[in-house]
Simulated assay, not measured.
Amino acid sequence: MLITQSAGKFLKRNSTIQLGNNQVDLSIPVVMGIVNITPDSFYDGGKMEDEVTMLKAVEEMVENGVSIIDVGAVSTRPGAEAVSTKVELGRLLPAVQAIHKNFPEIPISIDTFRSWVAVRVVDEIGPVIVNDVSGGILDSKMFETMAQLQVPYVLSHIQGTLKNMQDSPEYTDIIKEISTYFAEKVKKLNKLGVKDVIIDPGFGFGKNLDHNYELLNRLDAFKVFQLPVMVGLSRKSMIWKALDVTPETALNGTSVANTLALLGGADILRVHDVKEAVEAVKIFCEIKASIH
């Protein structure tokens, strides 16, 4: 099975990722829909705690053209309370099982920084994408586990830890420092035999407002890695603070930021609002198709 979206082809190196026997086509940008099974996430905490509500939300995402569902059971907002592996698995496993059962054709990503959680989920439902906001920092076994599982890995940049990352982030040259971070970690992953690596510059993870916008403005610098780039801007503080609104009213700003990210080379948009992101991708594809 080849998972695709209908639009023009803009092929590049590493334009697919392997998920078990299936391929996820990234030759044009795709949308990853966020499903937070948490009581305390910054925007949608507590909204999907029961299975019926969650599956209805996933169904709507599928109808609106989502390509990947990203399920998280631990809030990674700045200052969020830590939860145990047991609690995380207790939330996550039933959710991914239900989504896989009801939407077997949709690739699943799990938002976790724990290698054991990844092992348990793969044992239960098969290959998934592992979206690790810590870039292996919070679990020293994550990289070798990814090599053993042979599943796609989202390598995110973070400065500091989830608890202190927003206290006082500092960079001399943010692009250079993040690029060095990626170069070192991608080398380690490749050496271990991890075949599919997606890089995420980590908007909001150890970055202030100015850092985030410099990163967005220079996103195309990461094309040098010739790896898929994932961007998560959806309703984040860099948008609602700049507009002096709230996360709940930051959808228009999110769409603008997502469009700029696409122009900068983003391959995956990780979002709460799938319909609007898919529309941004379609407009982007029309622009690309008009270039001769």
Rank of each mutant, 00 (worst) to 15 (best):
L138P: 01
H157I: 05
Y181Q: 14
D173W: 00
P169C: 01
V121K: 01
Q166F: 08
I137L: 15
T161K: 04
L162I: 14
Q159Y: 09
D173S: 12
L149R: 03
M165I: 00
V121Y: 07
I178W: 02
E184D: 14
Q148S: 10
E124P: 02
Q166S: 11
I175T: 06
I137F: 14
K163I: 07
S156H: 12
M146D: 12
D132T: 10
D123H: 13
S156D: 11
E170K: 13
G135Q: 04
S156N: 10
G126P: 12
H157M: 03
A147D: 15
A183I: 02
K163F: 05
L162E: 10
S156E: 08
D123T: 03
Q159V: 06
K176L: 13
F143T: 04
W116T: 12
R114H: 15
T172E: 15
Y153W: 06
Q166V: 12
V151W: 00
T172P: 02
L149V: 14
L162W: 03
Y171W: 10
S179T: 14
P169A: 04
D132K: 00
S168F: 05
V122F: 07
I175A: 06
I174Q: 04
V121A: 08
P169G: 06
S115W: 11
L162A: 12
V154R: 00
Q148N: 09
E184A: 14
Y171S: 11
I174N: 04
L138M: 12
Q159P: 12
S156V: 13
T172Y: 08
Q159H: 09
Q150T: 11
R120T: 11
D167G: 01
D123N: 14
L149C: 11
M165L: 11
K141A: 13
I178F: 01
V130M: 04
V128H: 00
G160N: 10
P152D: 04
S140H: 14
T180W: 02
Y181R: 01
V133L: 12
I129E: 05
N164I: 05
E184F: 03
V151G: 02
Q159S: 12
A147I: 12
K163L: 14
Q150I: 01
V121E: 11
S140K: 11
M142L: 15
S179K: 13
T172V: 14
I137S: 09
I174S: 04
G160C: 07
Q166Y: 10
S140P: 08
G136M: 06
E124C: 09
D123Y: 04
V119F: 06
M146R: 04
S140Y: 10
F182T: 00
I175M: 11
A147T: 15
G136K: 00
T180S: 09
A147R: 11
D167R: 05
Y181P: 00
K141R: 14
V121F: 02
K141M: 13
M142W: 04
V119D: 03
E170W: 03
F182Y: 07
P127V: 07
Y171V: 12
V122P: 05
S168V: 05
M165Q: 09
Q159F: 05
Q148L: 11
E184V: 13
A183C: 12
V121W: 02
H157C: 06
A147G: 15
E177T: 06
V122H: 02
F113D: 14
F113I: 04
Y181V: 00
G136S: 15
Y171H: 05
P152F: 05
I137P: 00
I174Y: 02
E124N: 06
S179L: 01
A183H: 10
